[in-house]
Design a protein around this nucleic acid. Sequence first.
DNA 1: TTGAAAGCGATACCAG
DNA 2: CTGGTATCGCTTTCAA
Lengths: 326, 326
Amino acid sequence: MATIKDVARMAGVSISTVSKYLNGGNVRPENLEPIRSAIAALDYRANPFARCLKAQRSRSIGILLPNMAAPFFGTMVMALDTILREHGYHSMICCYGSSHGLERDYFRFLLSTGVDGMVYVPEDLSAEEFRELTAQRPIPVVQVDRAIQGVETDAVLVNNMEIVYNGVCGLLDRGHRRVAIITGPKSVFTAKERLVGYLRAMSDYDLPYDDSLVHSGELTFATGYTGFGLLMQLPNPPTAIICTNYDITLGVITAAQERGIRLPEQIDLLGFDCVEVCSLMTPALPVVQQPEQEIGRTAAAYLLQRLDGCQDAPRQLRLEARLVNP
Amino acid sequence: MATIKDVARMAGVSISTVSKYLNGGNVRPENLEPIRSAIAALDYRANPFARCLKAQRSRSIGILLPNMAAPFFGTMVMALDTILREHGYHSMICCYGSSHGLERDYFRFLLSTGVDGMVYVPEDLSAEEFRELTAQRPIPVVQVDRAIQGVETDAVLVNNMEIVYNGVCGLLDRGHRRVAIITGPKSVFTAKERLVGYLRAMSDYDLPYDDSLVHSGELTFATGYTGFGLLMQLPNPPTAIICTNYDITLGVITAAQERGIRLPEQIDLLGFDCVEVCSLMTPALPVVQQPEQEIGRTAAAYLLQRLDGCQDAPRQLRLEARLVNP
DNA sequence: TTGAAAGCGATACCAG
DNA sequence: CTGGTATCGCTTTCAA
């Protein structure tokens, strides 16, 4: 690879002049052409490491999330990445999956990689751990989809409580009285909020809390699949179920089909995130759709503002999910 | 951030000694402890840019693909990334979407970023352009899912032709005679191969080629959706349709539902990639499932071997897709 | 405007 | 084994 030195030599000017040219400084007109052609001839490209070493910034953003094979996150990340790129940043994506040690490791890793900022979907980190991790190198972080209680950063969230409340009310209005919920671990922010929405709706309809109707586990297909089985075994099984993420919904639908239970005739269902699937069932199943793209775009905008020096108080935005096929 | 200099000073040794300690060299036992505690006290972490500048390698891999919100690519990338990471590499993911200028731009960008190797799902680059792009900085590239004709790199592909051939034969065996295909642009490697599989099956069953049964467009929902409409308007519409990717399949199913056409009773369908959806339809629709994880893992393995200095002739592997719900 | 020179932080050679 | 030093490629003073 050609270096700036080669360009300087070939153009017959000094290194500094080339550097100035490269960085938009003023260069005597008669020097312009030689520099330009030298760059072209040598196909010169600045070494990014040398540049970052000097500049102390990488123009890269860390993105840390559980899983990007899930359409929700995949779509969100694409939107995020597009905006960041338009502004000269590129992203380093890390997925910690369900392995909890990884979340902390990757957080460390991204920091050590020299990212200028971070978009973070937290799952298992405490406020204290977060602070400890970020103490060394304070960079702007935007929390997305979930927020660690007690950590004050920009956050782009969704109105989980309300949307589930509305969804459950819909089921109750249709006459259901035994409505179950299959949801993620209580430690996960979104799972907790969605559970609250469910509980509040049940309570508003004067239905007593029934522990056997609340099934929580990992945010996986298996949780939905086995959860459905367990609910069906109850002496008094539910007549409707609400799921709180993509994989759980798929698990439930699959389990129902395998048992020959027809949705929504025999068991009513409110799905989450998997609009493609729910909309294609006959009849279409109601499902919560989150504004993935808007989430990504907003997170990008917030982060870019911070990178631009914005010092406003941390903002916490709630975007609206909507009910499809209600 | 603390530098190696700070550590050296605090530990009372020279910079070189610290460096040696860091890189697994031999250090006098009594120096070990001071160095260790200095590192801990200062929370020292090597500056990645300085390190890369010196080492002339970044330990990062570029991943260039059309779209990672698609489950096929999302899953593939997750598997790929996991393996790479286990071997000390991290990945830089770029999606060029449907915007063709981007493919070349991002290729350039990834190269300029200093990646040590690349995993590449090509779409619009010619062999010549590819060679031109890679000429400057020769790094190992593994082509995945698709391969540019005339470019000799490792490639991990799928048996597109055979699987579609088998799928179409299945439809023909069930008595269908008018089988249509909705597929991607002929310029896309996989679309072309899948089309060949279709044509060959039709020809093997002595069915004359009918241009109106072959609909090709972008690999999008819209193509499937409108393609279905067009096919239905034919004076003599098909009785079965084969789709050749995720979005197209979704588009077709949606269009069918909106028109109240029942699958597979009225129109038989062979889907592609969207196993979640097809398996949950009643009855389940046959669908081609690709070994996403294996593709990712194999690509990673190939690349790691090259990074390790392997100079064998380029390998081209065909993994087997399979028919689900046949 | 230009160019010499001092770093940025880490590695590796080589003499001690 | 240790530590001084040159070097990686680039940016940025600072004099001229």
